Structures are given as C-alpha cells and as structure tokens.
Simulated scan of single mutants.
Amino acid sequence: MKVPTHSGSVGSVAPGAVNLKGRHFLTLRDFSAEEIKHVLRVSADLKKRIKHEGQFLPLLQGKSAAMIFEKRSTRTRMSTETGVSLLGGHACFLTPQDIHLGVNESTGDTARVLSGFADAVLARVHSHSTLEELASGASVPVINGLSDRYHPVQILADLLTLQEHYGSLEGLTLTWIGDGTNILHSLMMSLAKMGMNLRVATPKGYEADSGVLQEARRLSQQFGTALVLTSDPMEAAQGANVLVTDTWVSMGQEKEKAQRLRDFQGYQVTMQTGSVAAPDWVFLHCLPRKPEEVSDELFYSSRSLVFPESENRKWTIMGLMVSLLTDYSPQTPQLKI
C-alpha cells in the first residue's frame, strides 16, 4: 500500500529488492554487501527527497522507537529523535534512571515490555551482551546505538559520506590511526564487503579484538581487498584516500587518560600525515574530538568531512529505521551505491 505525500508516492517494494523488515541491527558482521548497500540507498534516497526536494514522507507514521541510553550522546540521540519525527514517528528517550534495565527487572523482561509499546528499540549500552539479551527477548527490531564492541550506525554515516564525496566506495583505501575501538571493529566488519581496503595503525597493546581481527582477515580474503596492520601511522597513511581516527580516551577510561596520551604520542593526524596519502585524501572523525587526536589545521580544513559525516548520522538512522520497519524501496533511480 502506498501512503500519499504532498509530492507524489512514498514508494513500494520493487521485485527482488532486499527486504530487511523485522531484522535486528547489532553488528554489520550479520549483514551482506547488498544489505548494507540497500540501507545506504534508502538513506541517500530519503536525504534527496526530503532535504533537497522538500517532500513529506510519513513512512513511520504511527510508529514509535524506544531509545535506551546507558551512555550520554549528542549525535545518536539527536539523529534518532529528529529523524524518526521527520518521518512521522515518535522516539522516546530512556536513561537508566527512567527504566529498570537490569535493576528490579531483567533485561529480557524489559525487552518484552518495550516490544509491546514500541516498534523498535535502539540501545546505547556499555556491554554488547546487553544488546544481545535485548534482541533475544524482543519481538521488534533492536538497533545497536553503540556498545563496547561495535558502533555500526556510525559506519553507515561514514560510508554514505564517502559515497557522496567520491561517487563510489569500490577501491577506496581507508586508514585508521588510533585505538582499537568499536568504530574500528565495525569498519573491519564492513569495508571489505564494500570493496574497500583497510590499513590500521595502533600502538602496541591497543590492537583490535583478536576475534574481530580474525573475521576481518577472512572477509578481506573473501572479497579480495587489502588489510594492513602496523604500529606506524605514516606507513598506514601511505596512499590512503581516507584518514580516520577516534577518541583515545573513551567514556569509562578517564582514569587511564595520562597513560593513554603517553602511549598515543605520534598518532595525532595532521596535514603532515596526509602528505603521504593519495592526492584526493579526506579526513573523518565520529566526534566528539580532542585536539591531541587531530590538529585544528586539518580538522577545520577542506579535507575534513566530519560535519557532513555528523549530519549523515540522521539520514542513515532514518534509512535504517525505514529499512527495518517498512517495505520501502528507494525511488531515486540514479543512486549508484
């Protein structure tokens, strides 16, 4: 059934189209190349039709999302609240002080309760196992808004930003310089599927999780892409199209700050780092950012795509919600993702 809008049809299911309706979204490891591309196509389509053409698309009218936040947030909260609202739905913000998650009520029971109230549950949690418990008990899609192991919604925004900038993801080389964080883990679970090479520089003792790395090597071999690991940032940056870093001191690691800053000496990404990259290189950072991670000169330069990347958190969470909750198929024919 098509829902009327102020400027034409909303969309319908195309024959043979990818359909993710009802799926959980905990890690990109569980999604194929075509499934990831589908979410990116929907995201780009919504951005074009809503932002650039001014269309009204109430694709989530009558639907609601419960948002559990064990950790504070700017982009994840705002992108979800504004995005769901823009599509005609309602997002409800819940902190540990608002609900009984794991206290007086099991996580599984909370999942069952929320499934009766909401059409999706987005959770930003400390432990990835909390997401797995929620998904096990929920009868609606559970979305990973961040966990200690993965941050897949951020990677969707990164990929859309690079697609917009370069016109294609195939063959790009992305260099990660910094800690072996949940962002790196999610990049490892997705880039090879997009035909992208990954080069990683981490200080000794700060490498990616061994299990994630093993899967990344398998994916790289399967899709014929390169995976390079080093502790030398300049070696990792050699020939890269994209330089990426993240916080060196994540939430909960504040007591380790002094030691971490010593261990990450020489890892600040600067224009000098980019001097050995490809001529068309750009910079990404998921934010919030500290000056020790990237120089002001680079962060605020034309090489930096961090603010378009930040905005794309909204369009990709919208694309993801629509993909998991409806049968929508993109209506913009020229999308080449």
Rank of each mutant, 00 (worst) to 15 (best):
M1K: 13
V3D: 04
V13C: 11
G16T: 06
A17H: 01
V18A: 05
L20I: 06
L20S: 03
R23I: 03
V39G: 08
V39A: 04
D45V: 05
L46N: 07
E53S: 04
L60A: 05
A65H: 01
A66Y: 04
A66L: 09
R72V: 11
T76E: 05
T80I: 12
L87G: 00
A91Q: 06
T95L: 14
D98W: 03
H100P: 11
L101C: 05
L101T: 08
G102W: 03
S106K: 05
D109W: 00
V125C: 06
H128T: 09
S136Y: 11
S139I: 07
V140T: 03
V142N: 04
H151L: 03
P152K: 07
L159D: 10
L160V: 07
L172A: 09
W176T: 06
G178V: 02
N182V: 05
M188Y: 10
M189L: 12
K193A: 07
M194G: 12
N197L: 08
R199S: 15
Y206N: 01
Y206S: 06
Q214R: 14
R218T: 13
S220L: 06
Q221S: 15
Q222W: 05
L229E: 15
T230Y: 04
T230H: 05
S231L: 07
D232F: 11
M234A: 13
A240K: 01
W248C: 05
V249H: 10
M251S: 10
Q253A: 15
E256I: 02
K257L: 09
R260P: 02
D263T: 03
D263F: 02
G266H: 08
V269A: 02
Q272W: 01
G274W: 03
V276P: 00
R289Y: 09
L298K: 04
S302P: 00
R303F: 14
R303N: 10
P308C: 09
K314S: 02
I317H: 08
M318E: 15
V322S: 09
Y328E: 02
